[in-house]
Design a protein around this nucleic acid. Sequence first.
DNA 1: GCAAAATTAATAGTAATACTATCAATTTTG
DNA 2: CAAAATTGATAGTATTACTATTAATTTTGC
Lengths: 224, 224
Amino acid sequence: MNDLLRNLKISINESIYLKDPESSDLGKRIVEHGILLINELGFDNFTFKKLGEHIQSNESSIYRYFENKHKFLIYLTNWYWGWKEYQLAFATINIKDPKHKLNQAIEILTREVEEDQSFNHINEVALNKIVINEYSKSYLTKEVDDENKEGYFLIYKRLSNRLKEMIADVNEGYPYPSSLASTILAGSLHQHFLKDHFTSLTDCGAKTSPSQYFIHLTSNLLNS
Amino acid sequence: MNDLLRNLKISINESIYLKDPESSDLGKRIVEHGILLINELGFDNFTFKKLGEHIQSNESSIYRYFENKHKFLIYLTNWYWGWKEYQLAFATINIKDPKHKLNQAIEILTREVEEDQSFNHINEVALNKIVINEYSKSYLTKEVDDENKEGYFLIYKRLSNRLKEMIADVNEGYPYPSSLASTILAGSLHQHFLKDHFTSLTDCGAKTSPSQYFIHLTSNLLNS
DNA sequence: GCAAAATTAATAGTAATACTATCAATTTTG
DNA sequence: CAAAATTGATAGTATTACTATTAATTTTGC
């Protein structure tokens, strides 16, 4: 992202928060330090009380922004996928060739994340680690169907669908474009996790990236 | 499985439990009803207290078998993967042709689960749902590296590695056999989840199965 | 610049969770 | 049949995940 986009705001479904954290200084500190603290402790060990201590504020004040830590995770991961959606749009808009476009999309969606200067209070590297380690906990719940109806996963579904369209544009005869898109998105988070914790289960590591693996896989699948 | 295997026992790393639940009637009831209750409530809402009430036993008695519910989940998922490993071994042992063997392996590992009469106190269908919904929570923790060293994920890693070997036997030039194996294992759980909760993100459903998707994907990748 | 409104902080309190400890009752076994 | 092991019942602790109330502080609108 560049300076032209300084005023960009990732828009997030209002039912996910009680009060928009972007609307106040405290709200931004909750998000900023929440990301750092979840990354440090893991989501399971993270509490609003601990976050309150970290930002020298009060547990009860945080509860005025988010109902509970589950919703806070939903908020953060929505932000992440919204951010990815912007990156994807900008990086692929002028590409005409469908194959090139798809490869670029996969690259954006599966690569190692770097800091984005456009969003001051968000550490995208830490947030990416949270998404790798915790995203699936946001939907692997008994409430998933209700929350899906509420639109909590809309951005992610839209993103997966964009990828699916690009897959179909390369090979309209390929019978599983939706499954391939979701496999790339969820699978790349998984490969990133494996390279950090279960090296024997992946070929990704110092020499090979998840992006290479998925670009190779997709090209071979669609161009044969 | 058949009657020849009546006395089969899935062996599980001793450091996962405090007392072998297979060694007593109470232990078996903990496992049997624990599976049903986790499937019913979801792992997050499951507690040993609730399980105690269900089996008309006491919370404190359950704690003598398992340190906590996390270890209980590790136990159950280990059992599941051990069971899959047996199925895989039996179903592929006499197949000579590497392509046929690999297809058979993918079928076994990704298909819809059916009841197995060999294991009385285990409801494999419910357990499969638990694995789909909860398995990733067992390793997406801050303790994953320590627990990996303790051997908590050995069976799963061995299974993934067997699949990797079969992939390499079909095409020794394919550069990402380990990643493909882990993608098939984790990806098929994910596709099963999607078909139940996010139908727009998958092509799997009434007419198409995750098995078909992954067999098609693998064949096309390795035979081109 | 000041009063009213909104926000935040501090404190207290509740119910549930995730255990541990103790001891009694029951069952198993040698 | 006595000793050992297992199980059940009860109680207790620290933490979590909140809600409620009120006071202090900050913001705003005129």
